[in-house]
Write a protein that binds this DNA or RNA. Structure first.
Lengths: 269, 269
DNA sequence: CAATCTTTGTGCACGCGTTCACAAAGGCAT
DNA sequence: ATGCCTTTGTGAACGCGTGCACAAAGATTG
């Protein structure tokens, strides 16, 4: 979603499209489930359904990895699990540090999804001296002062930032200076990082806002449809305070008409 | 990222590209920061830098909303904040429910990002009877039995799923049946939902795996570079257990060669 | 009022990702 | 061994998103 830069064209061969890489974990999860049920083989159609994608897309994705299927039969589940794991680099151990042990950081530390699949939480780091030494998820929280030492001693190359927004940029700089080259950022800020460092962003607030947009659009369409056909019921859920704008062009007008004084102070932070 | 279907072409006019919608919250955040600093206007260049995007892209994004800028000057911050808020539907109140009050659910309930920006946590719901009544983030957890009632009474149209993977599909079905039309899914599962329901997915494990892929690729390139120029230092961070594969074509060979017996049991769940 | 300078809004081209549709490949039954 | 049937792997077309580059628009200065 938010990888800082396009990856340098060097070593362009072997280039697996970014979109494909993003789907490999999905396939892997579906395959793991099949593997646990001892299913020996799957067709692209079945696996695609399980992963929630188009079967043609899945086949094309796999074609970037090599020719792993058997025509007329499908894919060997175990073999594919191994190949994708290897491709994603999950056959090796990835120590990660979590910086910022607040609500979210603690939840992440406790989250099973980390420890599974080759990721090992090497350290929990927080700037609050009161947190230092306190156990979270069975591990003592360490102070930010030791960040560099921790990174280097554990050979950490992946960092997770769960600090408040204000601290995130500085933390990222320290992580990077200490050797981290991949960052998963939960803080609601845009991190600016040097080339060669990958940043992925997880932002709850943004996701919700995108949903709100679609929600509003649905409500608008529904209102328009209801206006056209007033007899029918309201359909889905009625929005709470359905301040549905007159549903239509009103955007383009109004603008520039009112002075800037009419702008209500919208939302705190 | 994971919106189920392309949105129906009906009411295609006004159609703001999905990619643009996804960036609007970013712009809004940057604008809000400027607004707090009482900055009256911004150029596309400045704002783009703050949001971490290309300025041409930003201008094109804004052009979908209308012509809100003043040539030679830039954009009026307050006015733009209002316009984007309205476009995203943030001028109205969106009650949300969080289902699954475990580690993550509790952290989400406490997370400030929800209450800000027009989203109000209407209820916390959990299937564990022992949780019922317990206060989390200053709010009593309610039992799943009352899910439908809660949704309807509060006019909730956005649901957040933070349950274990096994429960997610069923929860989503109940939410949808009760009237929810947008879901933010934190459970590591593919939800299958009817048309007209938007699903967005946040999956920590997937994000980490994507980072691992790039990490591995960087390590491989670095090893290749080091091989070519053995005198230089290792550059960035040395991967922990650098089981760097012979760095090259090895993928295409080996396959089909070994029997399926050599596949190690990779990762638990 | 005219000239200059800044910044927007957008036409255009390019590249990536998705999807269709089908030939090639392999298993399986007869 | 031969033919049929299933499923893969991929060529090709299409559409979306991105970024360049520039003309139009407005402010500002003399």
């Amino acid at each position: 979603m938010a990888t800082g830069r396009t990856h340098r064209p060097a070593t362009r061969s072997r280039g697996i499209p970014e979109a494909t890489v993003a789907r490999l974990p999905l396939y892997l999860r579906a395959l793991t489930a099949l593997s646990e049920r001892s299913v020996p083989t799957v067709s692209s159609e079945e696996l695609a359904a399980a992963a929630g994608v188009n079967s043609a897309k899945l086949r094309k994705d796999f074609s970037y990895l090599g020719s792993y299927g058997t025509r007329g039969v499908g894919y060997d589940v175990e073999y594919l699990v191994y190949q994708i794991s290897r491709e994603l680099g999950l056959t090796q151990d990835w120590p990660v540090v979590i910086v910022g042990i607040g609500n979210l950081g603690a939840a992440l530390a406790n989250y099973g999804g980390f420890s599974a699949r080759g990721f090992r939480v090497a350290a929990l780091i927080d700037a609050d001296p009161a947190m230092a030494g306190k156990p979270v998820a069975g591990m003592a929280v360490q102070h930010t002062d030791d960040l560099e030492k921790i990174i280097e001693e554990n050979g950490v190359s992946i960092g997770v930032i769960a600090t408040p927004a204000g601290a995130a940029q500085q933390v990222s700089e320290r992580l990077i200076a200490a050797g981290v080259t991949s960052i998963l950022n939960f803080a609601p800020t845009v991190l600016s990082v040097p080339d060669g460092v990958d940043v992925r962003k997880v932002d709850l607030s943004i996701e919700l806002q995108i949903l709100a947009f679609h929600e509003q659009r649905k409500a608008g369409e529904e209102a328009a449809a209801a206006a056209a056909e007033p007899g029918s019921a309201a359909g889905g859920a009625a929005p709470a305070a359905a301040v549905v704008p007159p549903a239509g062009r009103t955007a383009a007008e109004a603008r520039k008409g009112g002075p800037e004084g009419d702008v209500p102070a919208v939302m705190p932070a």
